Simulated scan of single mutants.
Amino acid sequence: MSSYKSVAVVGAGRLGTHILSALAATEKISVILLSRPGSSKTAPPGVLVVPVDYTDINAVSSVFKEHKVDVVLSTLGHEGVGMQKSLADAAKLAAVKLFVPSEFGSPTHGHTVEAYKAKNEIAAHLKSLGIPSTRIYTGCFMEFLPFIASYADGKITIIGKGDAPISYTSLADIAGFVAYVLTTVPVAQLENRILRLEGDRASWNDVAKLFKASVERVESFTGKDAEMRTGLLTLFETGAGSTGWDEPNKRDGSGSEAAGSANSLWPGHHWQTIKEVHSL
């Protein structure tokens, strides 16, 4: 049984909002949401919103101490990843028991590309502070699949052959998993662990069949978010879209390092599939 009694969530975007609701619904743990001063963010019933400057280490530490925070969980987006360093420093001062950094995507360990490098630096900083951490790899958010694949007019647009497997997990499953493990799973199974989830697994060619779509192959994307999508799909073509991906050894892991290996921490749960989420 988990011994965590209080969690502070930082970031209330699409995923953060789902996690807040799932945590509050357990009624087993106290939940606060840290927000930037002046933010209009709201939270589900039972969740207290606490405005604080994320870069003010002493102020954040005081919030953690006041609310007896055991767990800090961050869902900050790419631009906010670096802010987690000051949050970690504050967590150290407040004797926080566990820090869950903003991962929630494909495996970042061992990667040197800038977006992933920043997350590895946060993991290294937490280790240097001696704060136990849990990194959660989820693969792509299942709901975002049409955007990532540029699905429109019966066609998806990809880079490469499209045969490499990619992991997908729904927002509801990610949030439910987080709430379950933080309130149920023994601490020893969470501290300094990488948890690899997978709700479904499919290559781009598999996705095209599911959506009954044709496939257009390009070398790069143009338009909005072109650089991000080009970089992401180029990585996926190497196999790095699987939550079991071992970047240093360029292969999929096995056993406890396999894609979906952490699903077993939530026994009896039905993980949503691509077909279910998109009503295919």
Rank of each mutant, 00 (worst) to 15 (best):
L197R: 01
L126C: 11
P186M: 08
A262M: 07
E219Q: 15
I131G: 13
S86G: 00
Y151F: 15
L197G: 02
E247N: 09
P45G: 00
K212E: 13
S35L: 04
P45C: 06
A262D: 07
E219L: 12
P165F: 10
A94F: 13
I158D: 14
V218Q: 12
I148G: 05
I194Q: 04
H269Q: 12
F104G: 07
I156M: 15
T55K: 03
Q189G: 00
T157P: 12
G46M: 08
G130R: 09
L232K: 05
V185K: 08
A152T: 10
I158V: 15
G46S: 07
T134D: 05
V113D: 15
H18R: 11
V50G: 01
D153P: 03
E198P: 00
I122Q: 05
L280T: 11
R229C: 03
K117H: 14
T17Y: 03
D206N: 10
L182I: 01
K224G: 04
I194H: 08
E257K: 13
H278P: 13
A172M: 03
V178P: 00
L129K: 15
L210G: 02
L280Q: 11
I57K: 05
L73D: 01
C140R: 05
S203R: 03
L34A: 02
G13C: 03
D252A: 12
L197I: 02
G268D: 07
V207M: 12
L232D: 02
I174F: 01
H67W: 13
G253M: 05
K275I: 08
D206K: 02
E103Y: 13
L232V: 11
M83A: 11
H269S: 11
N192T: 06
K68S: 14
K85R: 15
L23I: 06
I122D: 06
H67L: 04
Y116N: 10
S86K: 14
L235D: 06
A115N: 09
A90T: 13
S214M: 06
A22H: 10
L34V: 05
R229K: 14
D89L: 11
G253F: 06
K68Q: 14
S3V: 03
E257F: 07
G199A: 02
I159K: 09
A94T: 13
W271S: 08
L76Q: 08
T183P: 07
P44W: 10
V185R: 08
T238M: 06
L129P: 12
N205V: 05
S150N: 14
T234Y: 01
H67N: 14
R201T: 01
D225V: 07
F144E: 10
V71C: 06
G244T: 03
I19G: 01
G82H: 14
L20N: 10
G199P: 01
N120Q: 14
G16P: 02
V218M: 13
M1A: 09
S242E: 09
S279R: 15
S279A: 15
H111P: 00
S61T: 06
S74M: 07
K275D: 11
G268I: 08
A202F: 00
L195S: 04
V71A: 05
V50Q: 06
T138Q: 11
Q84C: 09
N58G: 00
I136N: 07
K92P: 04
Y116A: 12
P44N: 11
L129V: 09
F211A: 12
F64M: 08
E121P: 03
L232W: 08
G110L: 12
P37A: 03
G46V: 08
I174S: 00
A179N: 02
G223A: 10
H270F: 10
L33G: 04
H278N: 13
S128G: 11
